[in-house]
Structures are given as structure tokens and as C-alpha cells.
């Protein structure tokens, strides 16, 4: 059996982390190819339900990354994201979701190396955890049916 290759979705802001990932490219820093970037104008724009959508559609891990505090292109979007994450995480903890599968980070436009390391670290972490199957475990449970019914509406 081939090694488990996790699917990681990165939700990043356009001004810092996306540019940081570009910098990793221009400096030819190699990193794990398990990551797919979705570009947002700002981490403040990231609706955390999208994170759930990612897991629902088969992601094994998620990265959220934006500008460092005080460096936000829009002055305060990253602070809002951080606050929202704190609240969101506590809800996930409550329902028993493994919040270790979500990594919140700051990567600036000058931190290509940091971006590459972040992707590698998260890839290794999720590899060690194995595939995300919590939703599959709902199989056969009435909840799953209700859930399917709800999303097909």
C-alpha cells in the first residue's frame, strides 16, 4: 500500500501569505506538494464554514495563514480572523472535532522559507494522524442521513 498522501487546503490572504508562497517559488524552496492554496483578499474574508466544507469534501488538514498582527493590508482583518478562530476552535472542541487538523499561522510576504517549513510540518503532522474519517464514521447513523438530506436540499 502506497504511503498516505494527505490533502491539505491552505486558506491564505493575498498580501502576505500568498506573496510569501510566491517568494518560496522565486527562491526555489522545495516543499511538500500536498498543499492547495485558495487565495482570499484577506484572512478577515475567510468564512470558517469554508474550512468545514473542505473537510466535508475530503480534506485531511487545513492551513489558515495571513499577515502578522499589525501588518494587515486592511489594518485589522487578521485580528478579526484570529478572534473568529478562537471562538470557532472552542466550538470545534465542543463537538469533538480534532482541531489539530487546522493550523493557524502568520506568514509574511518575506517569509518564503517559513511558508515551506509550515507546509512540510503540517504535511508531516497530518500524515502521522492519518486520513480524516470522522465524517465517514457517521455512516449508518441516522445523523448521516439527516445530514445528507439537509445538504441536498
Amino acid at each position: 500500500m502506497s504511503e498516505f498522501e494527505p490533502k491539505i487546503v491552505a486558506f491564505v490572504c493575498n498580501w502576505c501569505t500568498y506573496a510569501g508562497a510566491d517568494l518560496a517559488g522565486t527562491s526555489r524552496t522545495q516543499y511538500a506538494s500536498n498543499v492547495r492554496i485558495v487565495r482570499f483578499p484577506c484572512t478577515g474574508r475567510i468564512d470558517f464554514m469554508l474550512l468545514m466544507k473542505a473537510f466535508e469534501n475530503g480534506a485531511d488538514g487545513v492551513i489558515v495563514s495571513g499577515c502578522h498582527p499589525n501588518d494587515c493590508h486592511y489594518t485589522s482583518g487578521n485580528f478579526h480572523a484570529r478572534r473568529r478562530w478562537i471562538v470557532f476552535r472552542s466550538i470545534l472542541d465542543l463537538i469533538g472535532f480534532d482541531t489539530d487538523r487546522i493550523t493557524f499561522s502568520w506568514v509574511s510576504a518575506a517569509e518564503g522559507k517559513k511558508w515551506a517549513n509550515l507546509v512540510d510540518e503540517v504535511t508531516d503532522k497530518i500524515k502521522a494522524k492519518g486520513p480524516f474519517t470522522d465524517l465517514d464514521k457517521l455512516d449508518g447513523v441516522q445523523l448521516k442521513e439527516l445530514y445528507d438530506e439537509a445538504i441536498t436540499k
Partner: peptide, 9 residues
């Protein structure tokens, strides 16, 4: 997001 994930990486 949906488009990203319906195939193996």
C-alpha cells in the same frame, strides 16, 4: 474548495 478536493492529490 469543492473543485480542489474531489480527486486524490
Amino acid at each position: 474548495v469543492v473543485a480542489l478536493l474531489n480527486k486524490p492529490f
